[in-house]
Amino acid sequence: MKGNLKNNKKNGNIYIPLNGRIEEIIQLTSDVRLFKAKTEIPIDYKPGQFFMISVWGSGEIPISVTSLPEKNGMPELCIRKTGVVTTAIHSLQTGQFVGLRGPYGNGFPMDISKGRDVVIVAGGIGIAPLRPLIQQFIKKPNETGKVTLLYGSRTPDEIIFRDEVEDWKKSGITVVLTVDKGNDNWNGNIGLVTGFWPEVRTNFKNAVAYICGPEVMIKAAMRDLFFLGMPDDRIITTLESHMKCGVGKCGHCYAGPKYICTDGPVFSYKEIKEQSILK
């Protein structure tokens, strides 16, 4: 594996993936698993960045980092089974390998949250790229003000990191969970996340928001927050897209004049409006 990395440098071929040995797999919901992959040399990355993950024979897809970088070099990847590649990844067992390129993309701007209240809005699998942010805020509680998480899922069974959510609460984060459709065991909120702004007790004008989820949700949340007084350059989202290369060459992730892989995937509402990215 070392040879591979050496090779990587020697040829300067950005398309050659590193080998990530899967050390642990955690089943989070019926179709979402968390993979912990170990590379020989620890890789540094920031919340909001992504890796191109591949299974040879199936292809390569972008997956956001789901954890903060650790010294043991085990990026965690939260993956929902939706297509060919994710299905192939789900068929892997510990001890097997995924290909790993990256990290790519800009990552979340962290300095803007210094000393401010933070609103995190997540929909479905959109919680995955936001998790390292939450971990960061928990790790350094003094750097931010009050942190509120609004997290919507389709059903109670589809709430990802349900156990961890309890830990987050204990660590001082205000969590509002909601589902589109309840079941017999659910006596929590029902409805869209954007219906729960009153639960966020903060001065929106002085706060910062990080949003990820389905596009309709992102658009609605950004619009609402802007209306509520939050400056558009502090409403931050990360966008999902079809990608083949991750490095701004293949063209698949275009959004207006930008490429989500190299100019994003993290954008502020300001950029989104000015560059007509979400249209």
Partner: peptide, 15 residues
């Protein structure tokens, strides 16, 4: 989708 009553954004708005 059962929706909670829509939020009165105007009331929450900080000007």
């Amino acid at each position: 989708v059962k929706r909670v009553p829509s939020v009165d954004l105007e009331a929450l708005r900080i000007t």
